[in-house]
């Protein structure tokens, strides 16, 4: 298919611009088709459901803007879940970014056994989520968990109640999220391979120290993947679900401190038979995500450096 595209007589596609349009569309064709086949119907259906009473079991019934109205005027849990999710995003996102980049930089050093290290940092990603949930409950158990035991042994600090204390539950899951940076690290590492060695050599000759080299060579060169991980991280934080769900078996204990937006959405959709309501929540989340990532993209013009432009 592609070969034919380029073989089109040059005469027909007189200008580079015309050729670009045809090629651009041809290369993007699978995805455009995919969008039409697998996305358009489900996405617009869910938009329609958001204006309906829809239990899944029976056909949706038109309800106007009632779902949206109820969300904002008569749903404490909804407001609570927004607060929890923003709290999580506000801390987990920047923390994850700095942590992920730092680990990637460490793993990018030419030290012995770096392949072993890289594998190790990826390990938590491979452990099944249900298993991780139970593990964290053990580690963070205030009475007998390892964490508080070590805090006492090394610093003589009586550790907090972590996951069983509403005030500490969110910080706990934010800490837990740092174990999951493995995926982002793999991407950073791939990005780091694209930084030409010559740049480092040149910087070193100029007398730049390690920190300056990171600051002026490495980081600018991986800004495209940083942007990627930021956007994906933002979407992930807004839709944060699995760990908190497994730890609390879905009910957001203690005292709803771990009831995140996507958990409440899921509860509405599949536990309480309120798919219409859940869809309204989903579309609000969608809007919030679109606006925040648009802002990120706009700002990226100032800080993302693309070698290809």
């Amino acid at each position: 298919m592609m070969a034919e595209a380029s073989a089109l007589p040059r005469r027909l596609l007189r200008t580079q611009r015309q050729r670009n349009i045809v090629n651009g569309l041809l290369f993007a064709a699978p995805w455009i088709l995919g969008l039409l086949l697998f996305y358009v119907y489900p996405i617009f259906s869910s938009l329609y459901y958001s204006f309906c009473d829809y239990s899944i079991l029976q056909a949706p019934k038109w309800a106007g803007i009632r779902n949206y109205l109820t969300l904002f005027t008569n749903d404490e849990k909804f407001i609570k879940s927004i607060y929890n999710t923003l709290y999580y995003a506000f801390f987990a996102l920047p923390l994850g970014l700095v942590w992920g980049v730092s680990i990637a930089l460490l793993l990018n050093m030419k030290v012995k056994g770096v392949s072993v290290y890289r594998t190790i940092y990826f390990l938590p990603v491979l452990v099944p989520d249900v298993a991780l949930g139970i593990l964290w409950l053990w580690v963070f158990n205030p009475q007998l968990g390892i964490l508080n035991a070590l805090l006492w042994k090394w610093f003589h600090i009586v550790g907090p109640g972590w996951l069983s204390d509403p005030a500490w539950a969110k910080p706990s899951v934010i800490i837990i999220s740092l174990w999951g940076v493995g995926q982002a690290v793999v991407i950073y590492l791939a990005g780091l391979q694209d930084v030409p060695q010559e740049l480092y050599d040149a910087a070193e000759v100029d007398g730049a120290n390690a920190w300056q080299r990171i600051r002026n060579v490495t980081i600018p060169m991986i800004t495209p993947v940083i942007l990627f991980n930021l956007i994906i991280g933002l979407i992930g934080a807004f839709q944060y679900f699995t760990t908190a769900y497994v730890i609390t078996t879905g009910d957001g204990r203690p005292a709803l401190s771990l009831m995140f937006y996507a958990m409440y959405l899921y509860q509405n959709a599949f536990v309480l038979y309120k798919m219409g309501y859940a869809s309204a929540m989903a579309w609000l989340l969608f809007l919030a995500a679109v606006i925040s990532s648009y802002a990120l993209f706009r700002s990226s013009a100032r800080w993302v450096y693309y070698g290809g432009q």
Binding site: G133, I134, L137, G161, L163, S164
Partner: peptide, 12 residues
């Protein structure tokens, strides 16, 4: 916080 860690934090 103490007794709750006994009841819930063991998970399932």
């Amino acid at each position: 916080a103490t007794i709750d860690s006994f009841s819930q934090a063991f998970g399932q």
